[in-house]
Amino acid sequence: MTLTSPDRARTDVWSDATLLYALEEVVERELNRHLGVAKEWMPHEYVPWSDGRNFDGIMGGDAWAPDQSKVTDVGRISLVVNLLTEDNLPSYHHEIATLFGRDGAWGTWVHRWTAEEGRHAIVMRDYLLTSRAVDPVELERFRMQHMSEGFEHDHRHSMVHSVAYVAFQELATRVSHRNTGRQSGDPVCDRMLARIATDENLHMVFYRNLLAAALELAPDLALRAIRDVVVEFRMPGHGMPGFERAAARMAIGGIYNLRIHHDDVLQPVLRHLKVLEISGLGPEGLQAQQELGMFMGGLNEQATRFDERREAMLARRAARG
């Protein structure tokens, strides 16, 4: 569907409801494409069950101790953050089901996405407990606290904002999982997280293609949403216990930081959509495009300063042995 040039730049032509309806065919097409390329996989096949043994408590096993873990310190921190993020799936499902609906292609996608995401928490928890990678008591207490607080998207009342957010967030999650696996020090963990990252990449492609269609239909509206999401971006786990401290450790450890966020998450999506090259915009779209370009330039400078500080810190640590 392509609108005439004068109408394409007008945001008043579109509401969430009209854009939701207009994108139905795109959702159906992307859903069929996704189902054609997604591979079935079994969580239990990625868990080293033979390594497991009883914990202390009613089973009378051994209490957990840090030296039982095969993963690195930063790997353990990141695994907890990533799992707690996946644990909040009921809240995420509620958010997108409320915005996208439960009928037609939109509803089918919502349920399919939820089912696929559910496997991620299953396999990660089974791995962590079987391999004794993390403290199971602390993990459960964190889960209860995090899920009890729920999750609300920063732009929860806007469908196009939500599409824009998940296009970036799914890629951010993929990158975080993949880097965690590489930094974990355990080949079993790396293989498991690589499998999860493959799912996350397919989810990103679905939402990115949907966002591309929104840009074609309502460029001003979509560009404003992209600008808002990029400038105000926060990972969905930002409210979990100890997130800021954990995020700092993950940043220094090279799992997720400003440079990675700029180079491996924001830039690939913006470049693929050619967001900064779109022409024929109205005043609001043009302003959003300009502000987005300025923000990305500033973020790159911040990332460069972070890189310099990180390298200096790592050099000092290496010098101290």
Rank of each mutant, 00 (worst) to 15 (best):
E86Y: 13
V81C: 09
G75S: 04
G52E: 12
L35D: 00
G75F: 08
W109D: 10
V74P: 04
A121Q: 04
R33G: 02
P43I: 02
T98L: 14
G60Q: 10
A65H: 14
D16T: 10
M42V: 01
L84C: 08
F100D: 13
E28C: 00
I58Y: 05
A38S: 11
K39C: 00
H44K: 10
L35V: 12
G57Q: 08
T98H: 01
I96G: 06
W41F: 13
V123R: 02
N88Q: 15
L83N: 05
F100A: 11
R76I: 00
A97Y: 09
A63K: 06
G107D: 11
R33P: 01
V80M: 12
D87I: 05
W109C: 07
T114V: 15
S50F: 00
Y92G: 10
S15M: 03
I77E: 10
A38V: 03
N88A: 15
E86D: 14
T18Q: 09
I77L: 04
H34E: 05
A63F: 03
I122L: 13
T11P: 04
S78K: 03
H44A: 15
H120Q: 11
D51I: 04
A63R: 09
I77W: 02
E24L: 10
L19M: 14
R102V: 09
E116I: 14
L23Q: 02
P43T: 03
K70R: 11
H44T: 11
E40D: 09
G75N: 03
N32K: 06
T114Y: 15
P66M: 10
S91G: 14
E24W: 07
L19W: 03
T114Q: 03
D87H: 11
H120P: 00
V80I: 15
D67G: 07
P66A: 08
N32R: 03
Y21G: 13
E45I: 02
D103H: 06
A115Q: 00
R29K: 09
V13T: 09
D51K: 04
N54L: 07
W14I: 03
L35S: 02
A115F: 13
L20V: 12
D62Q: 08
P90Y: 12
L19D: 13
D87R: 05
A38P: 04
V81F: 09
E117M: 04
A105D: 04
G36N: 12
A105G: 06
I58D: 12
Y46S: 02
K70Y: 05
H111C: 07
T18M: 11
G75H: 02
L35E: 04
H111Q: 01
H93D: 14
K70Q: 05
I96H: 15
F100W: 15
D56A: 15
N82F: 11
W106D: 07
H111L: 10
L19C: 15
Y92Q: 14
T108R: 07
T72M: 08
W14Y: 05
R76C: 00
E40W: 05
M59A: 14
D56Y: 06
A22W: 07
G118L: 01
E117T: 02
R53L: 09
F55M: 09
E45G: 04
V13A: 08
L89P: 13
S69M: 06
W41C: 07
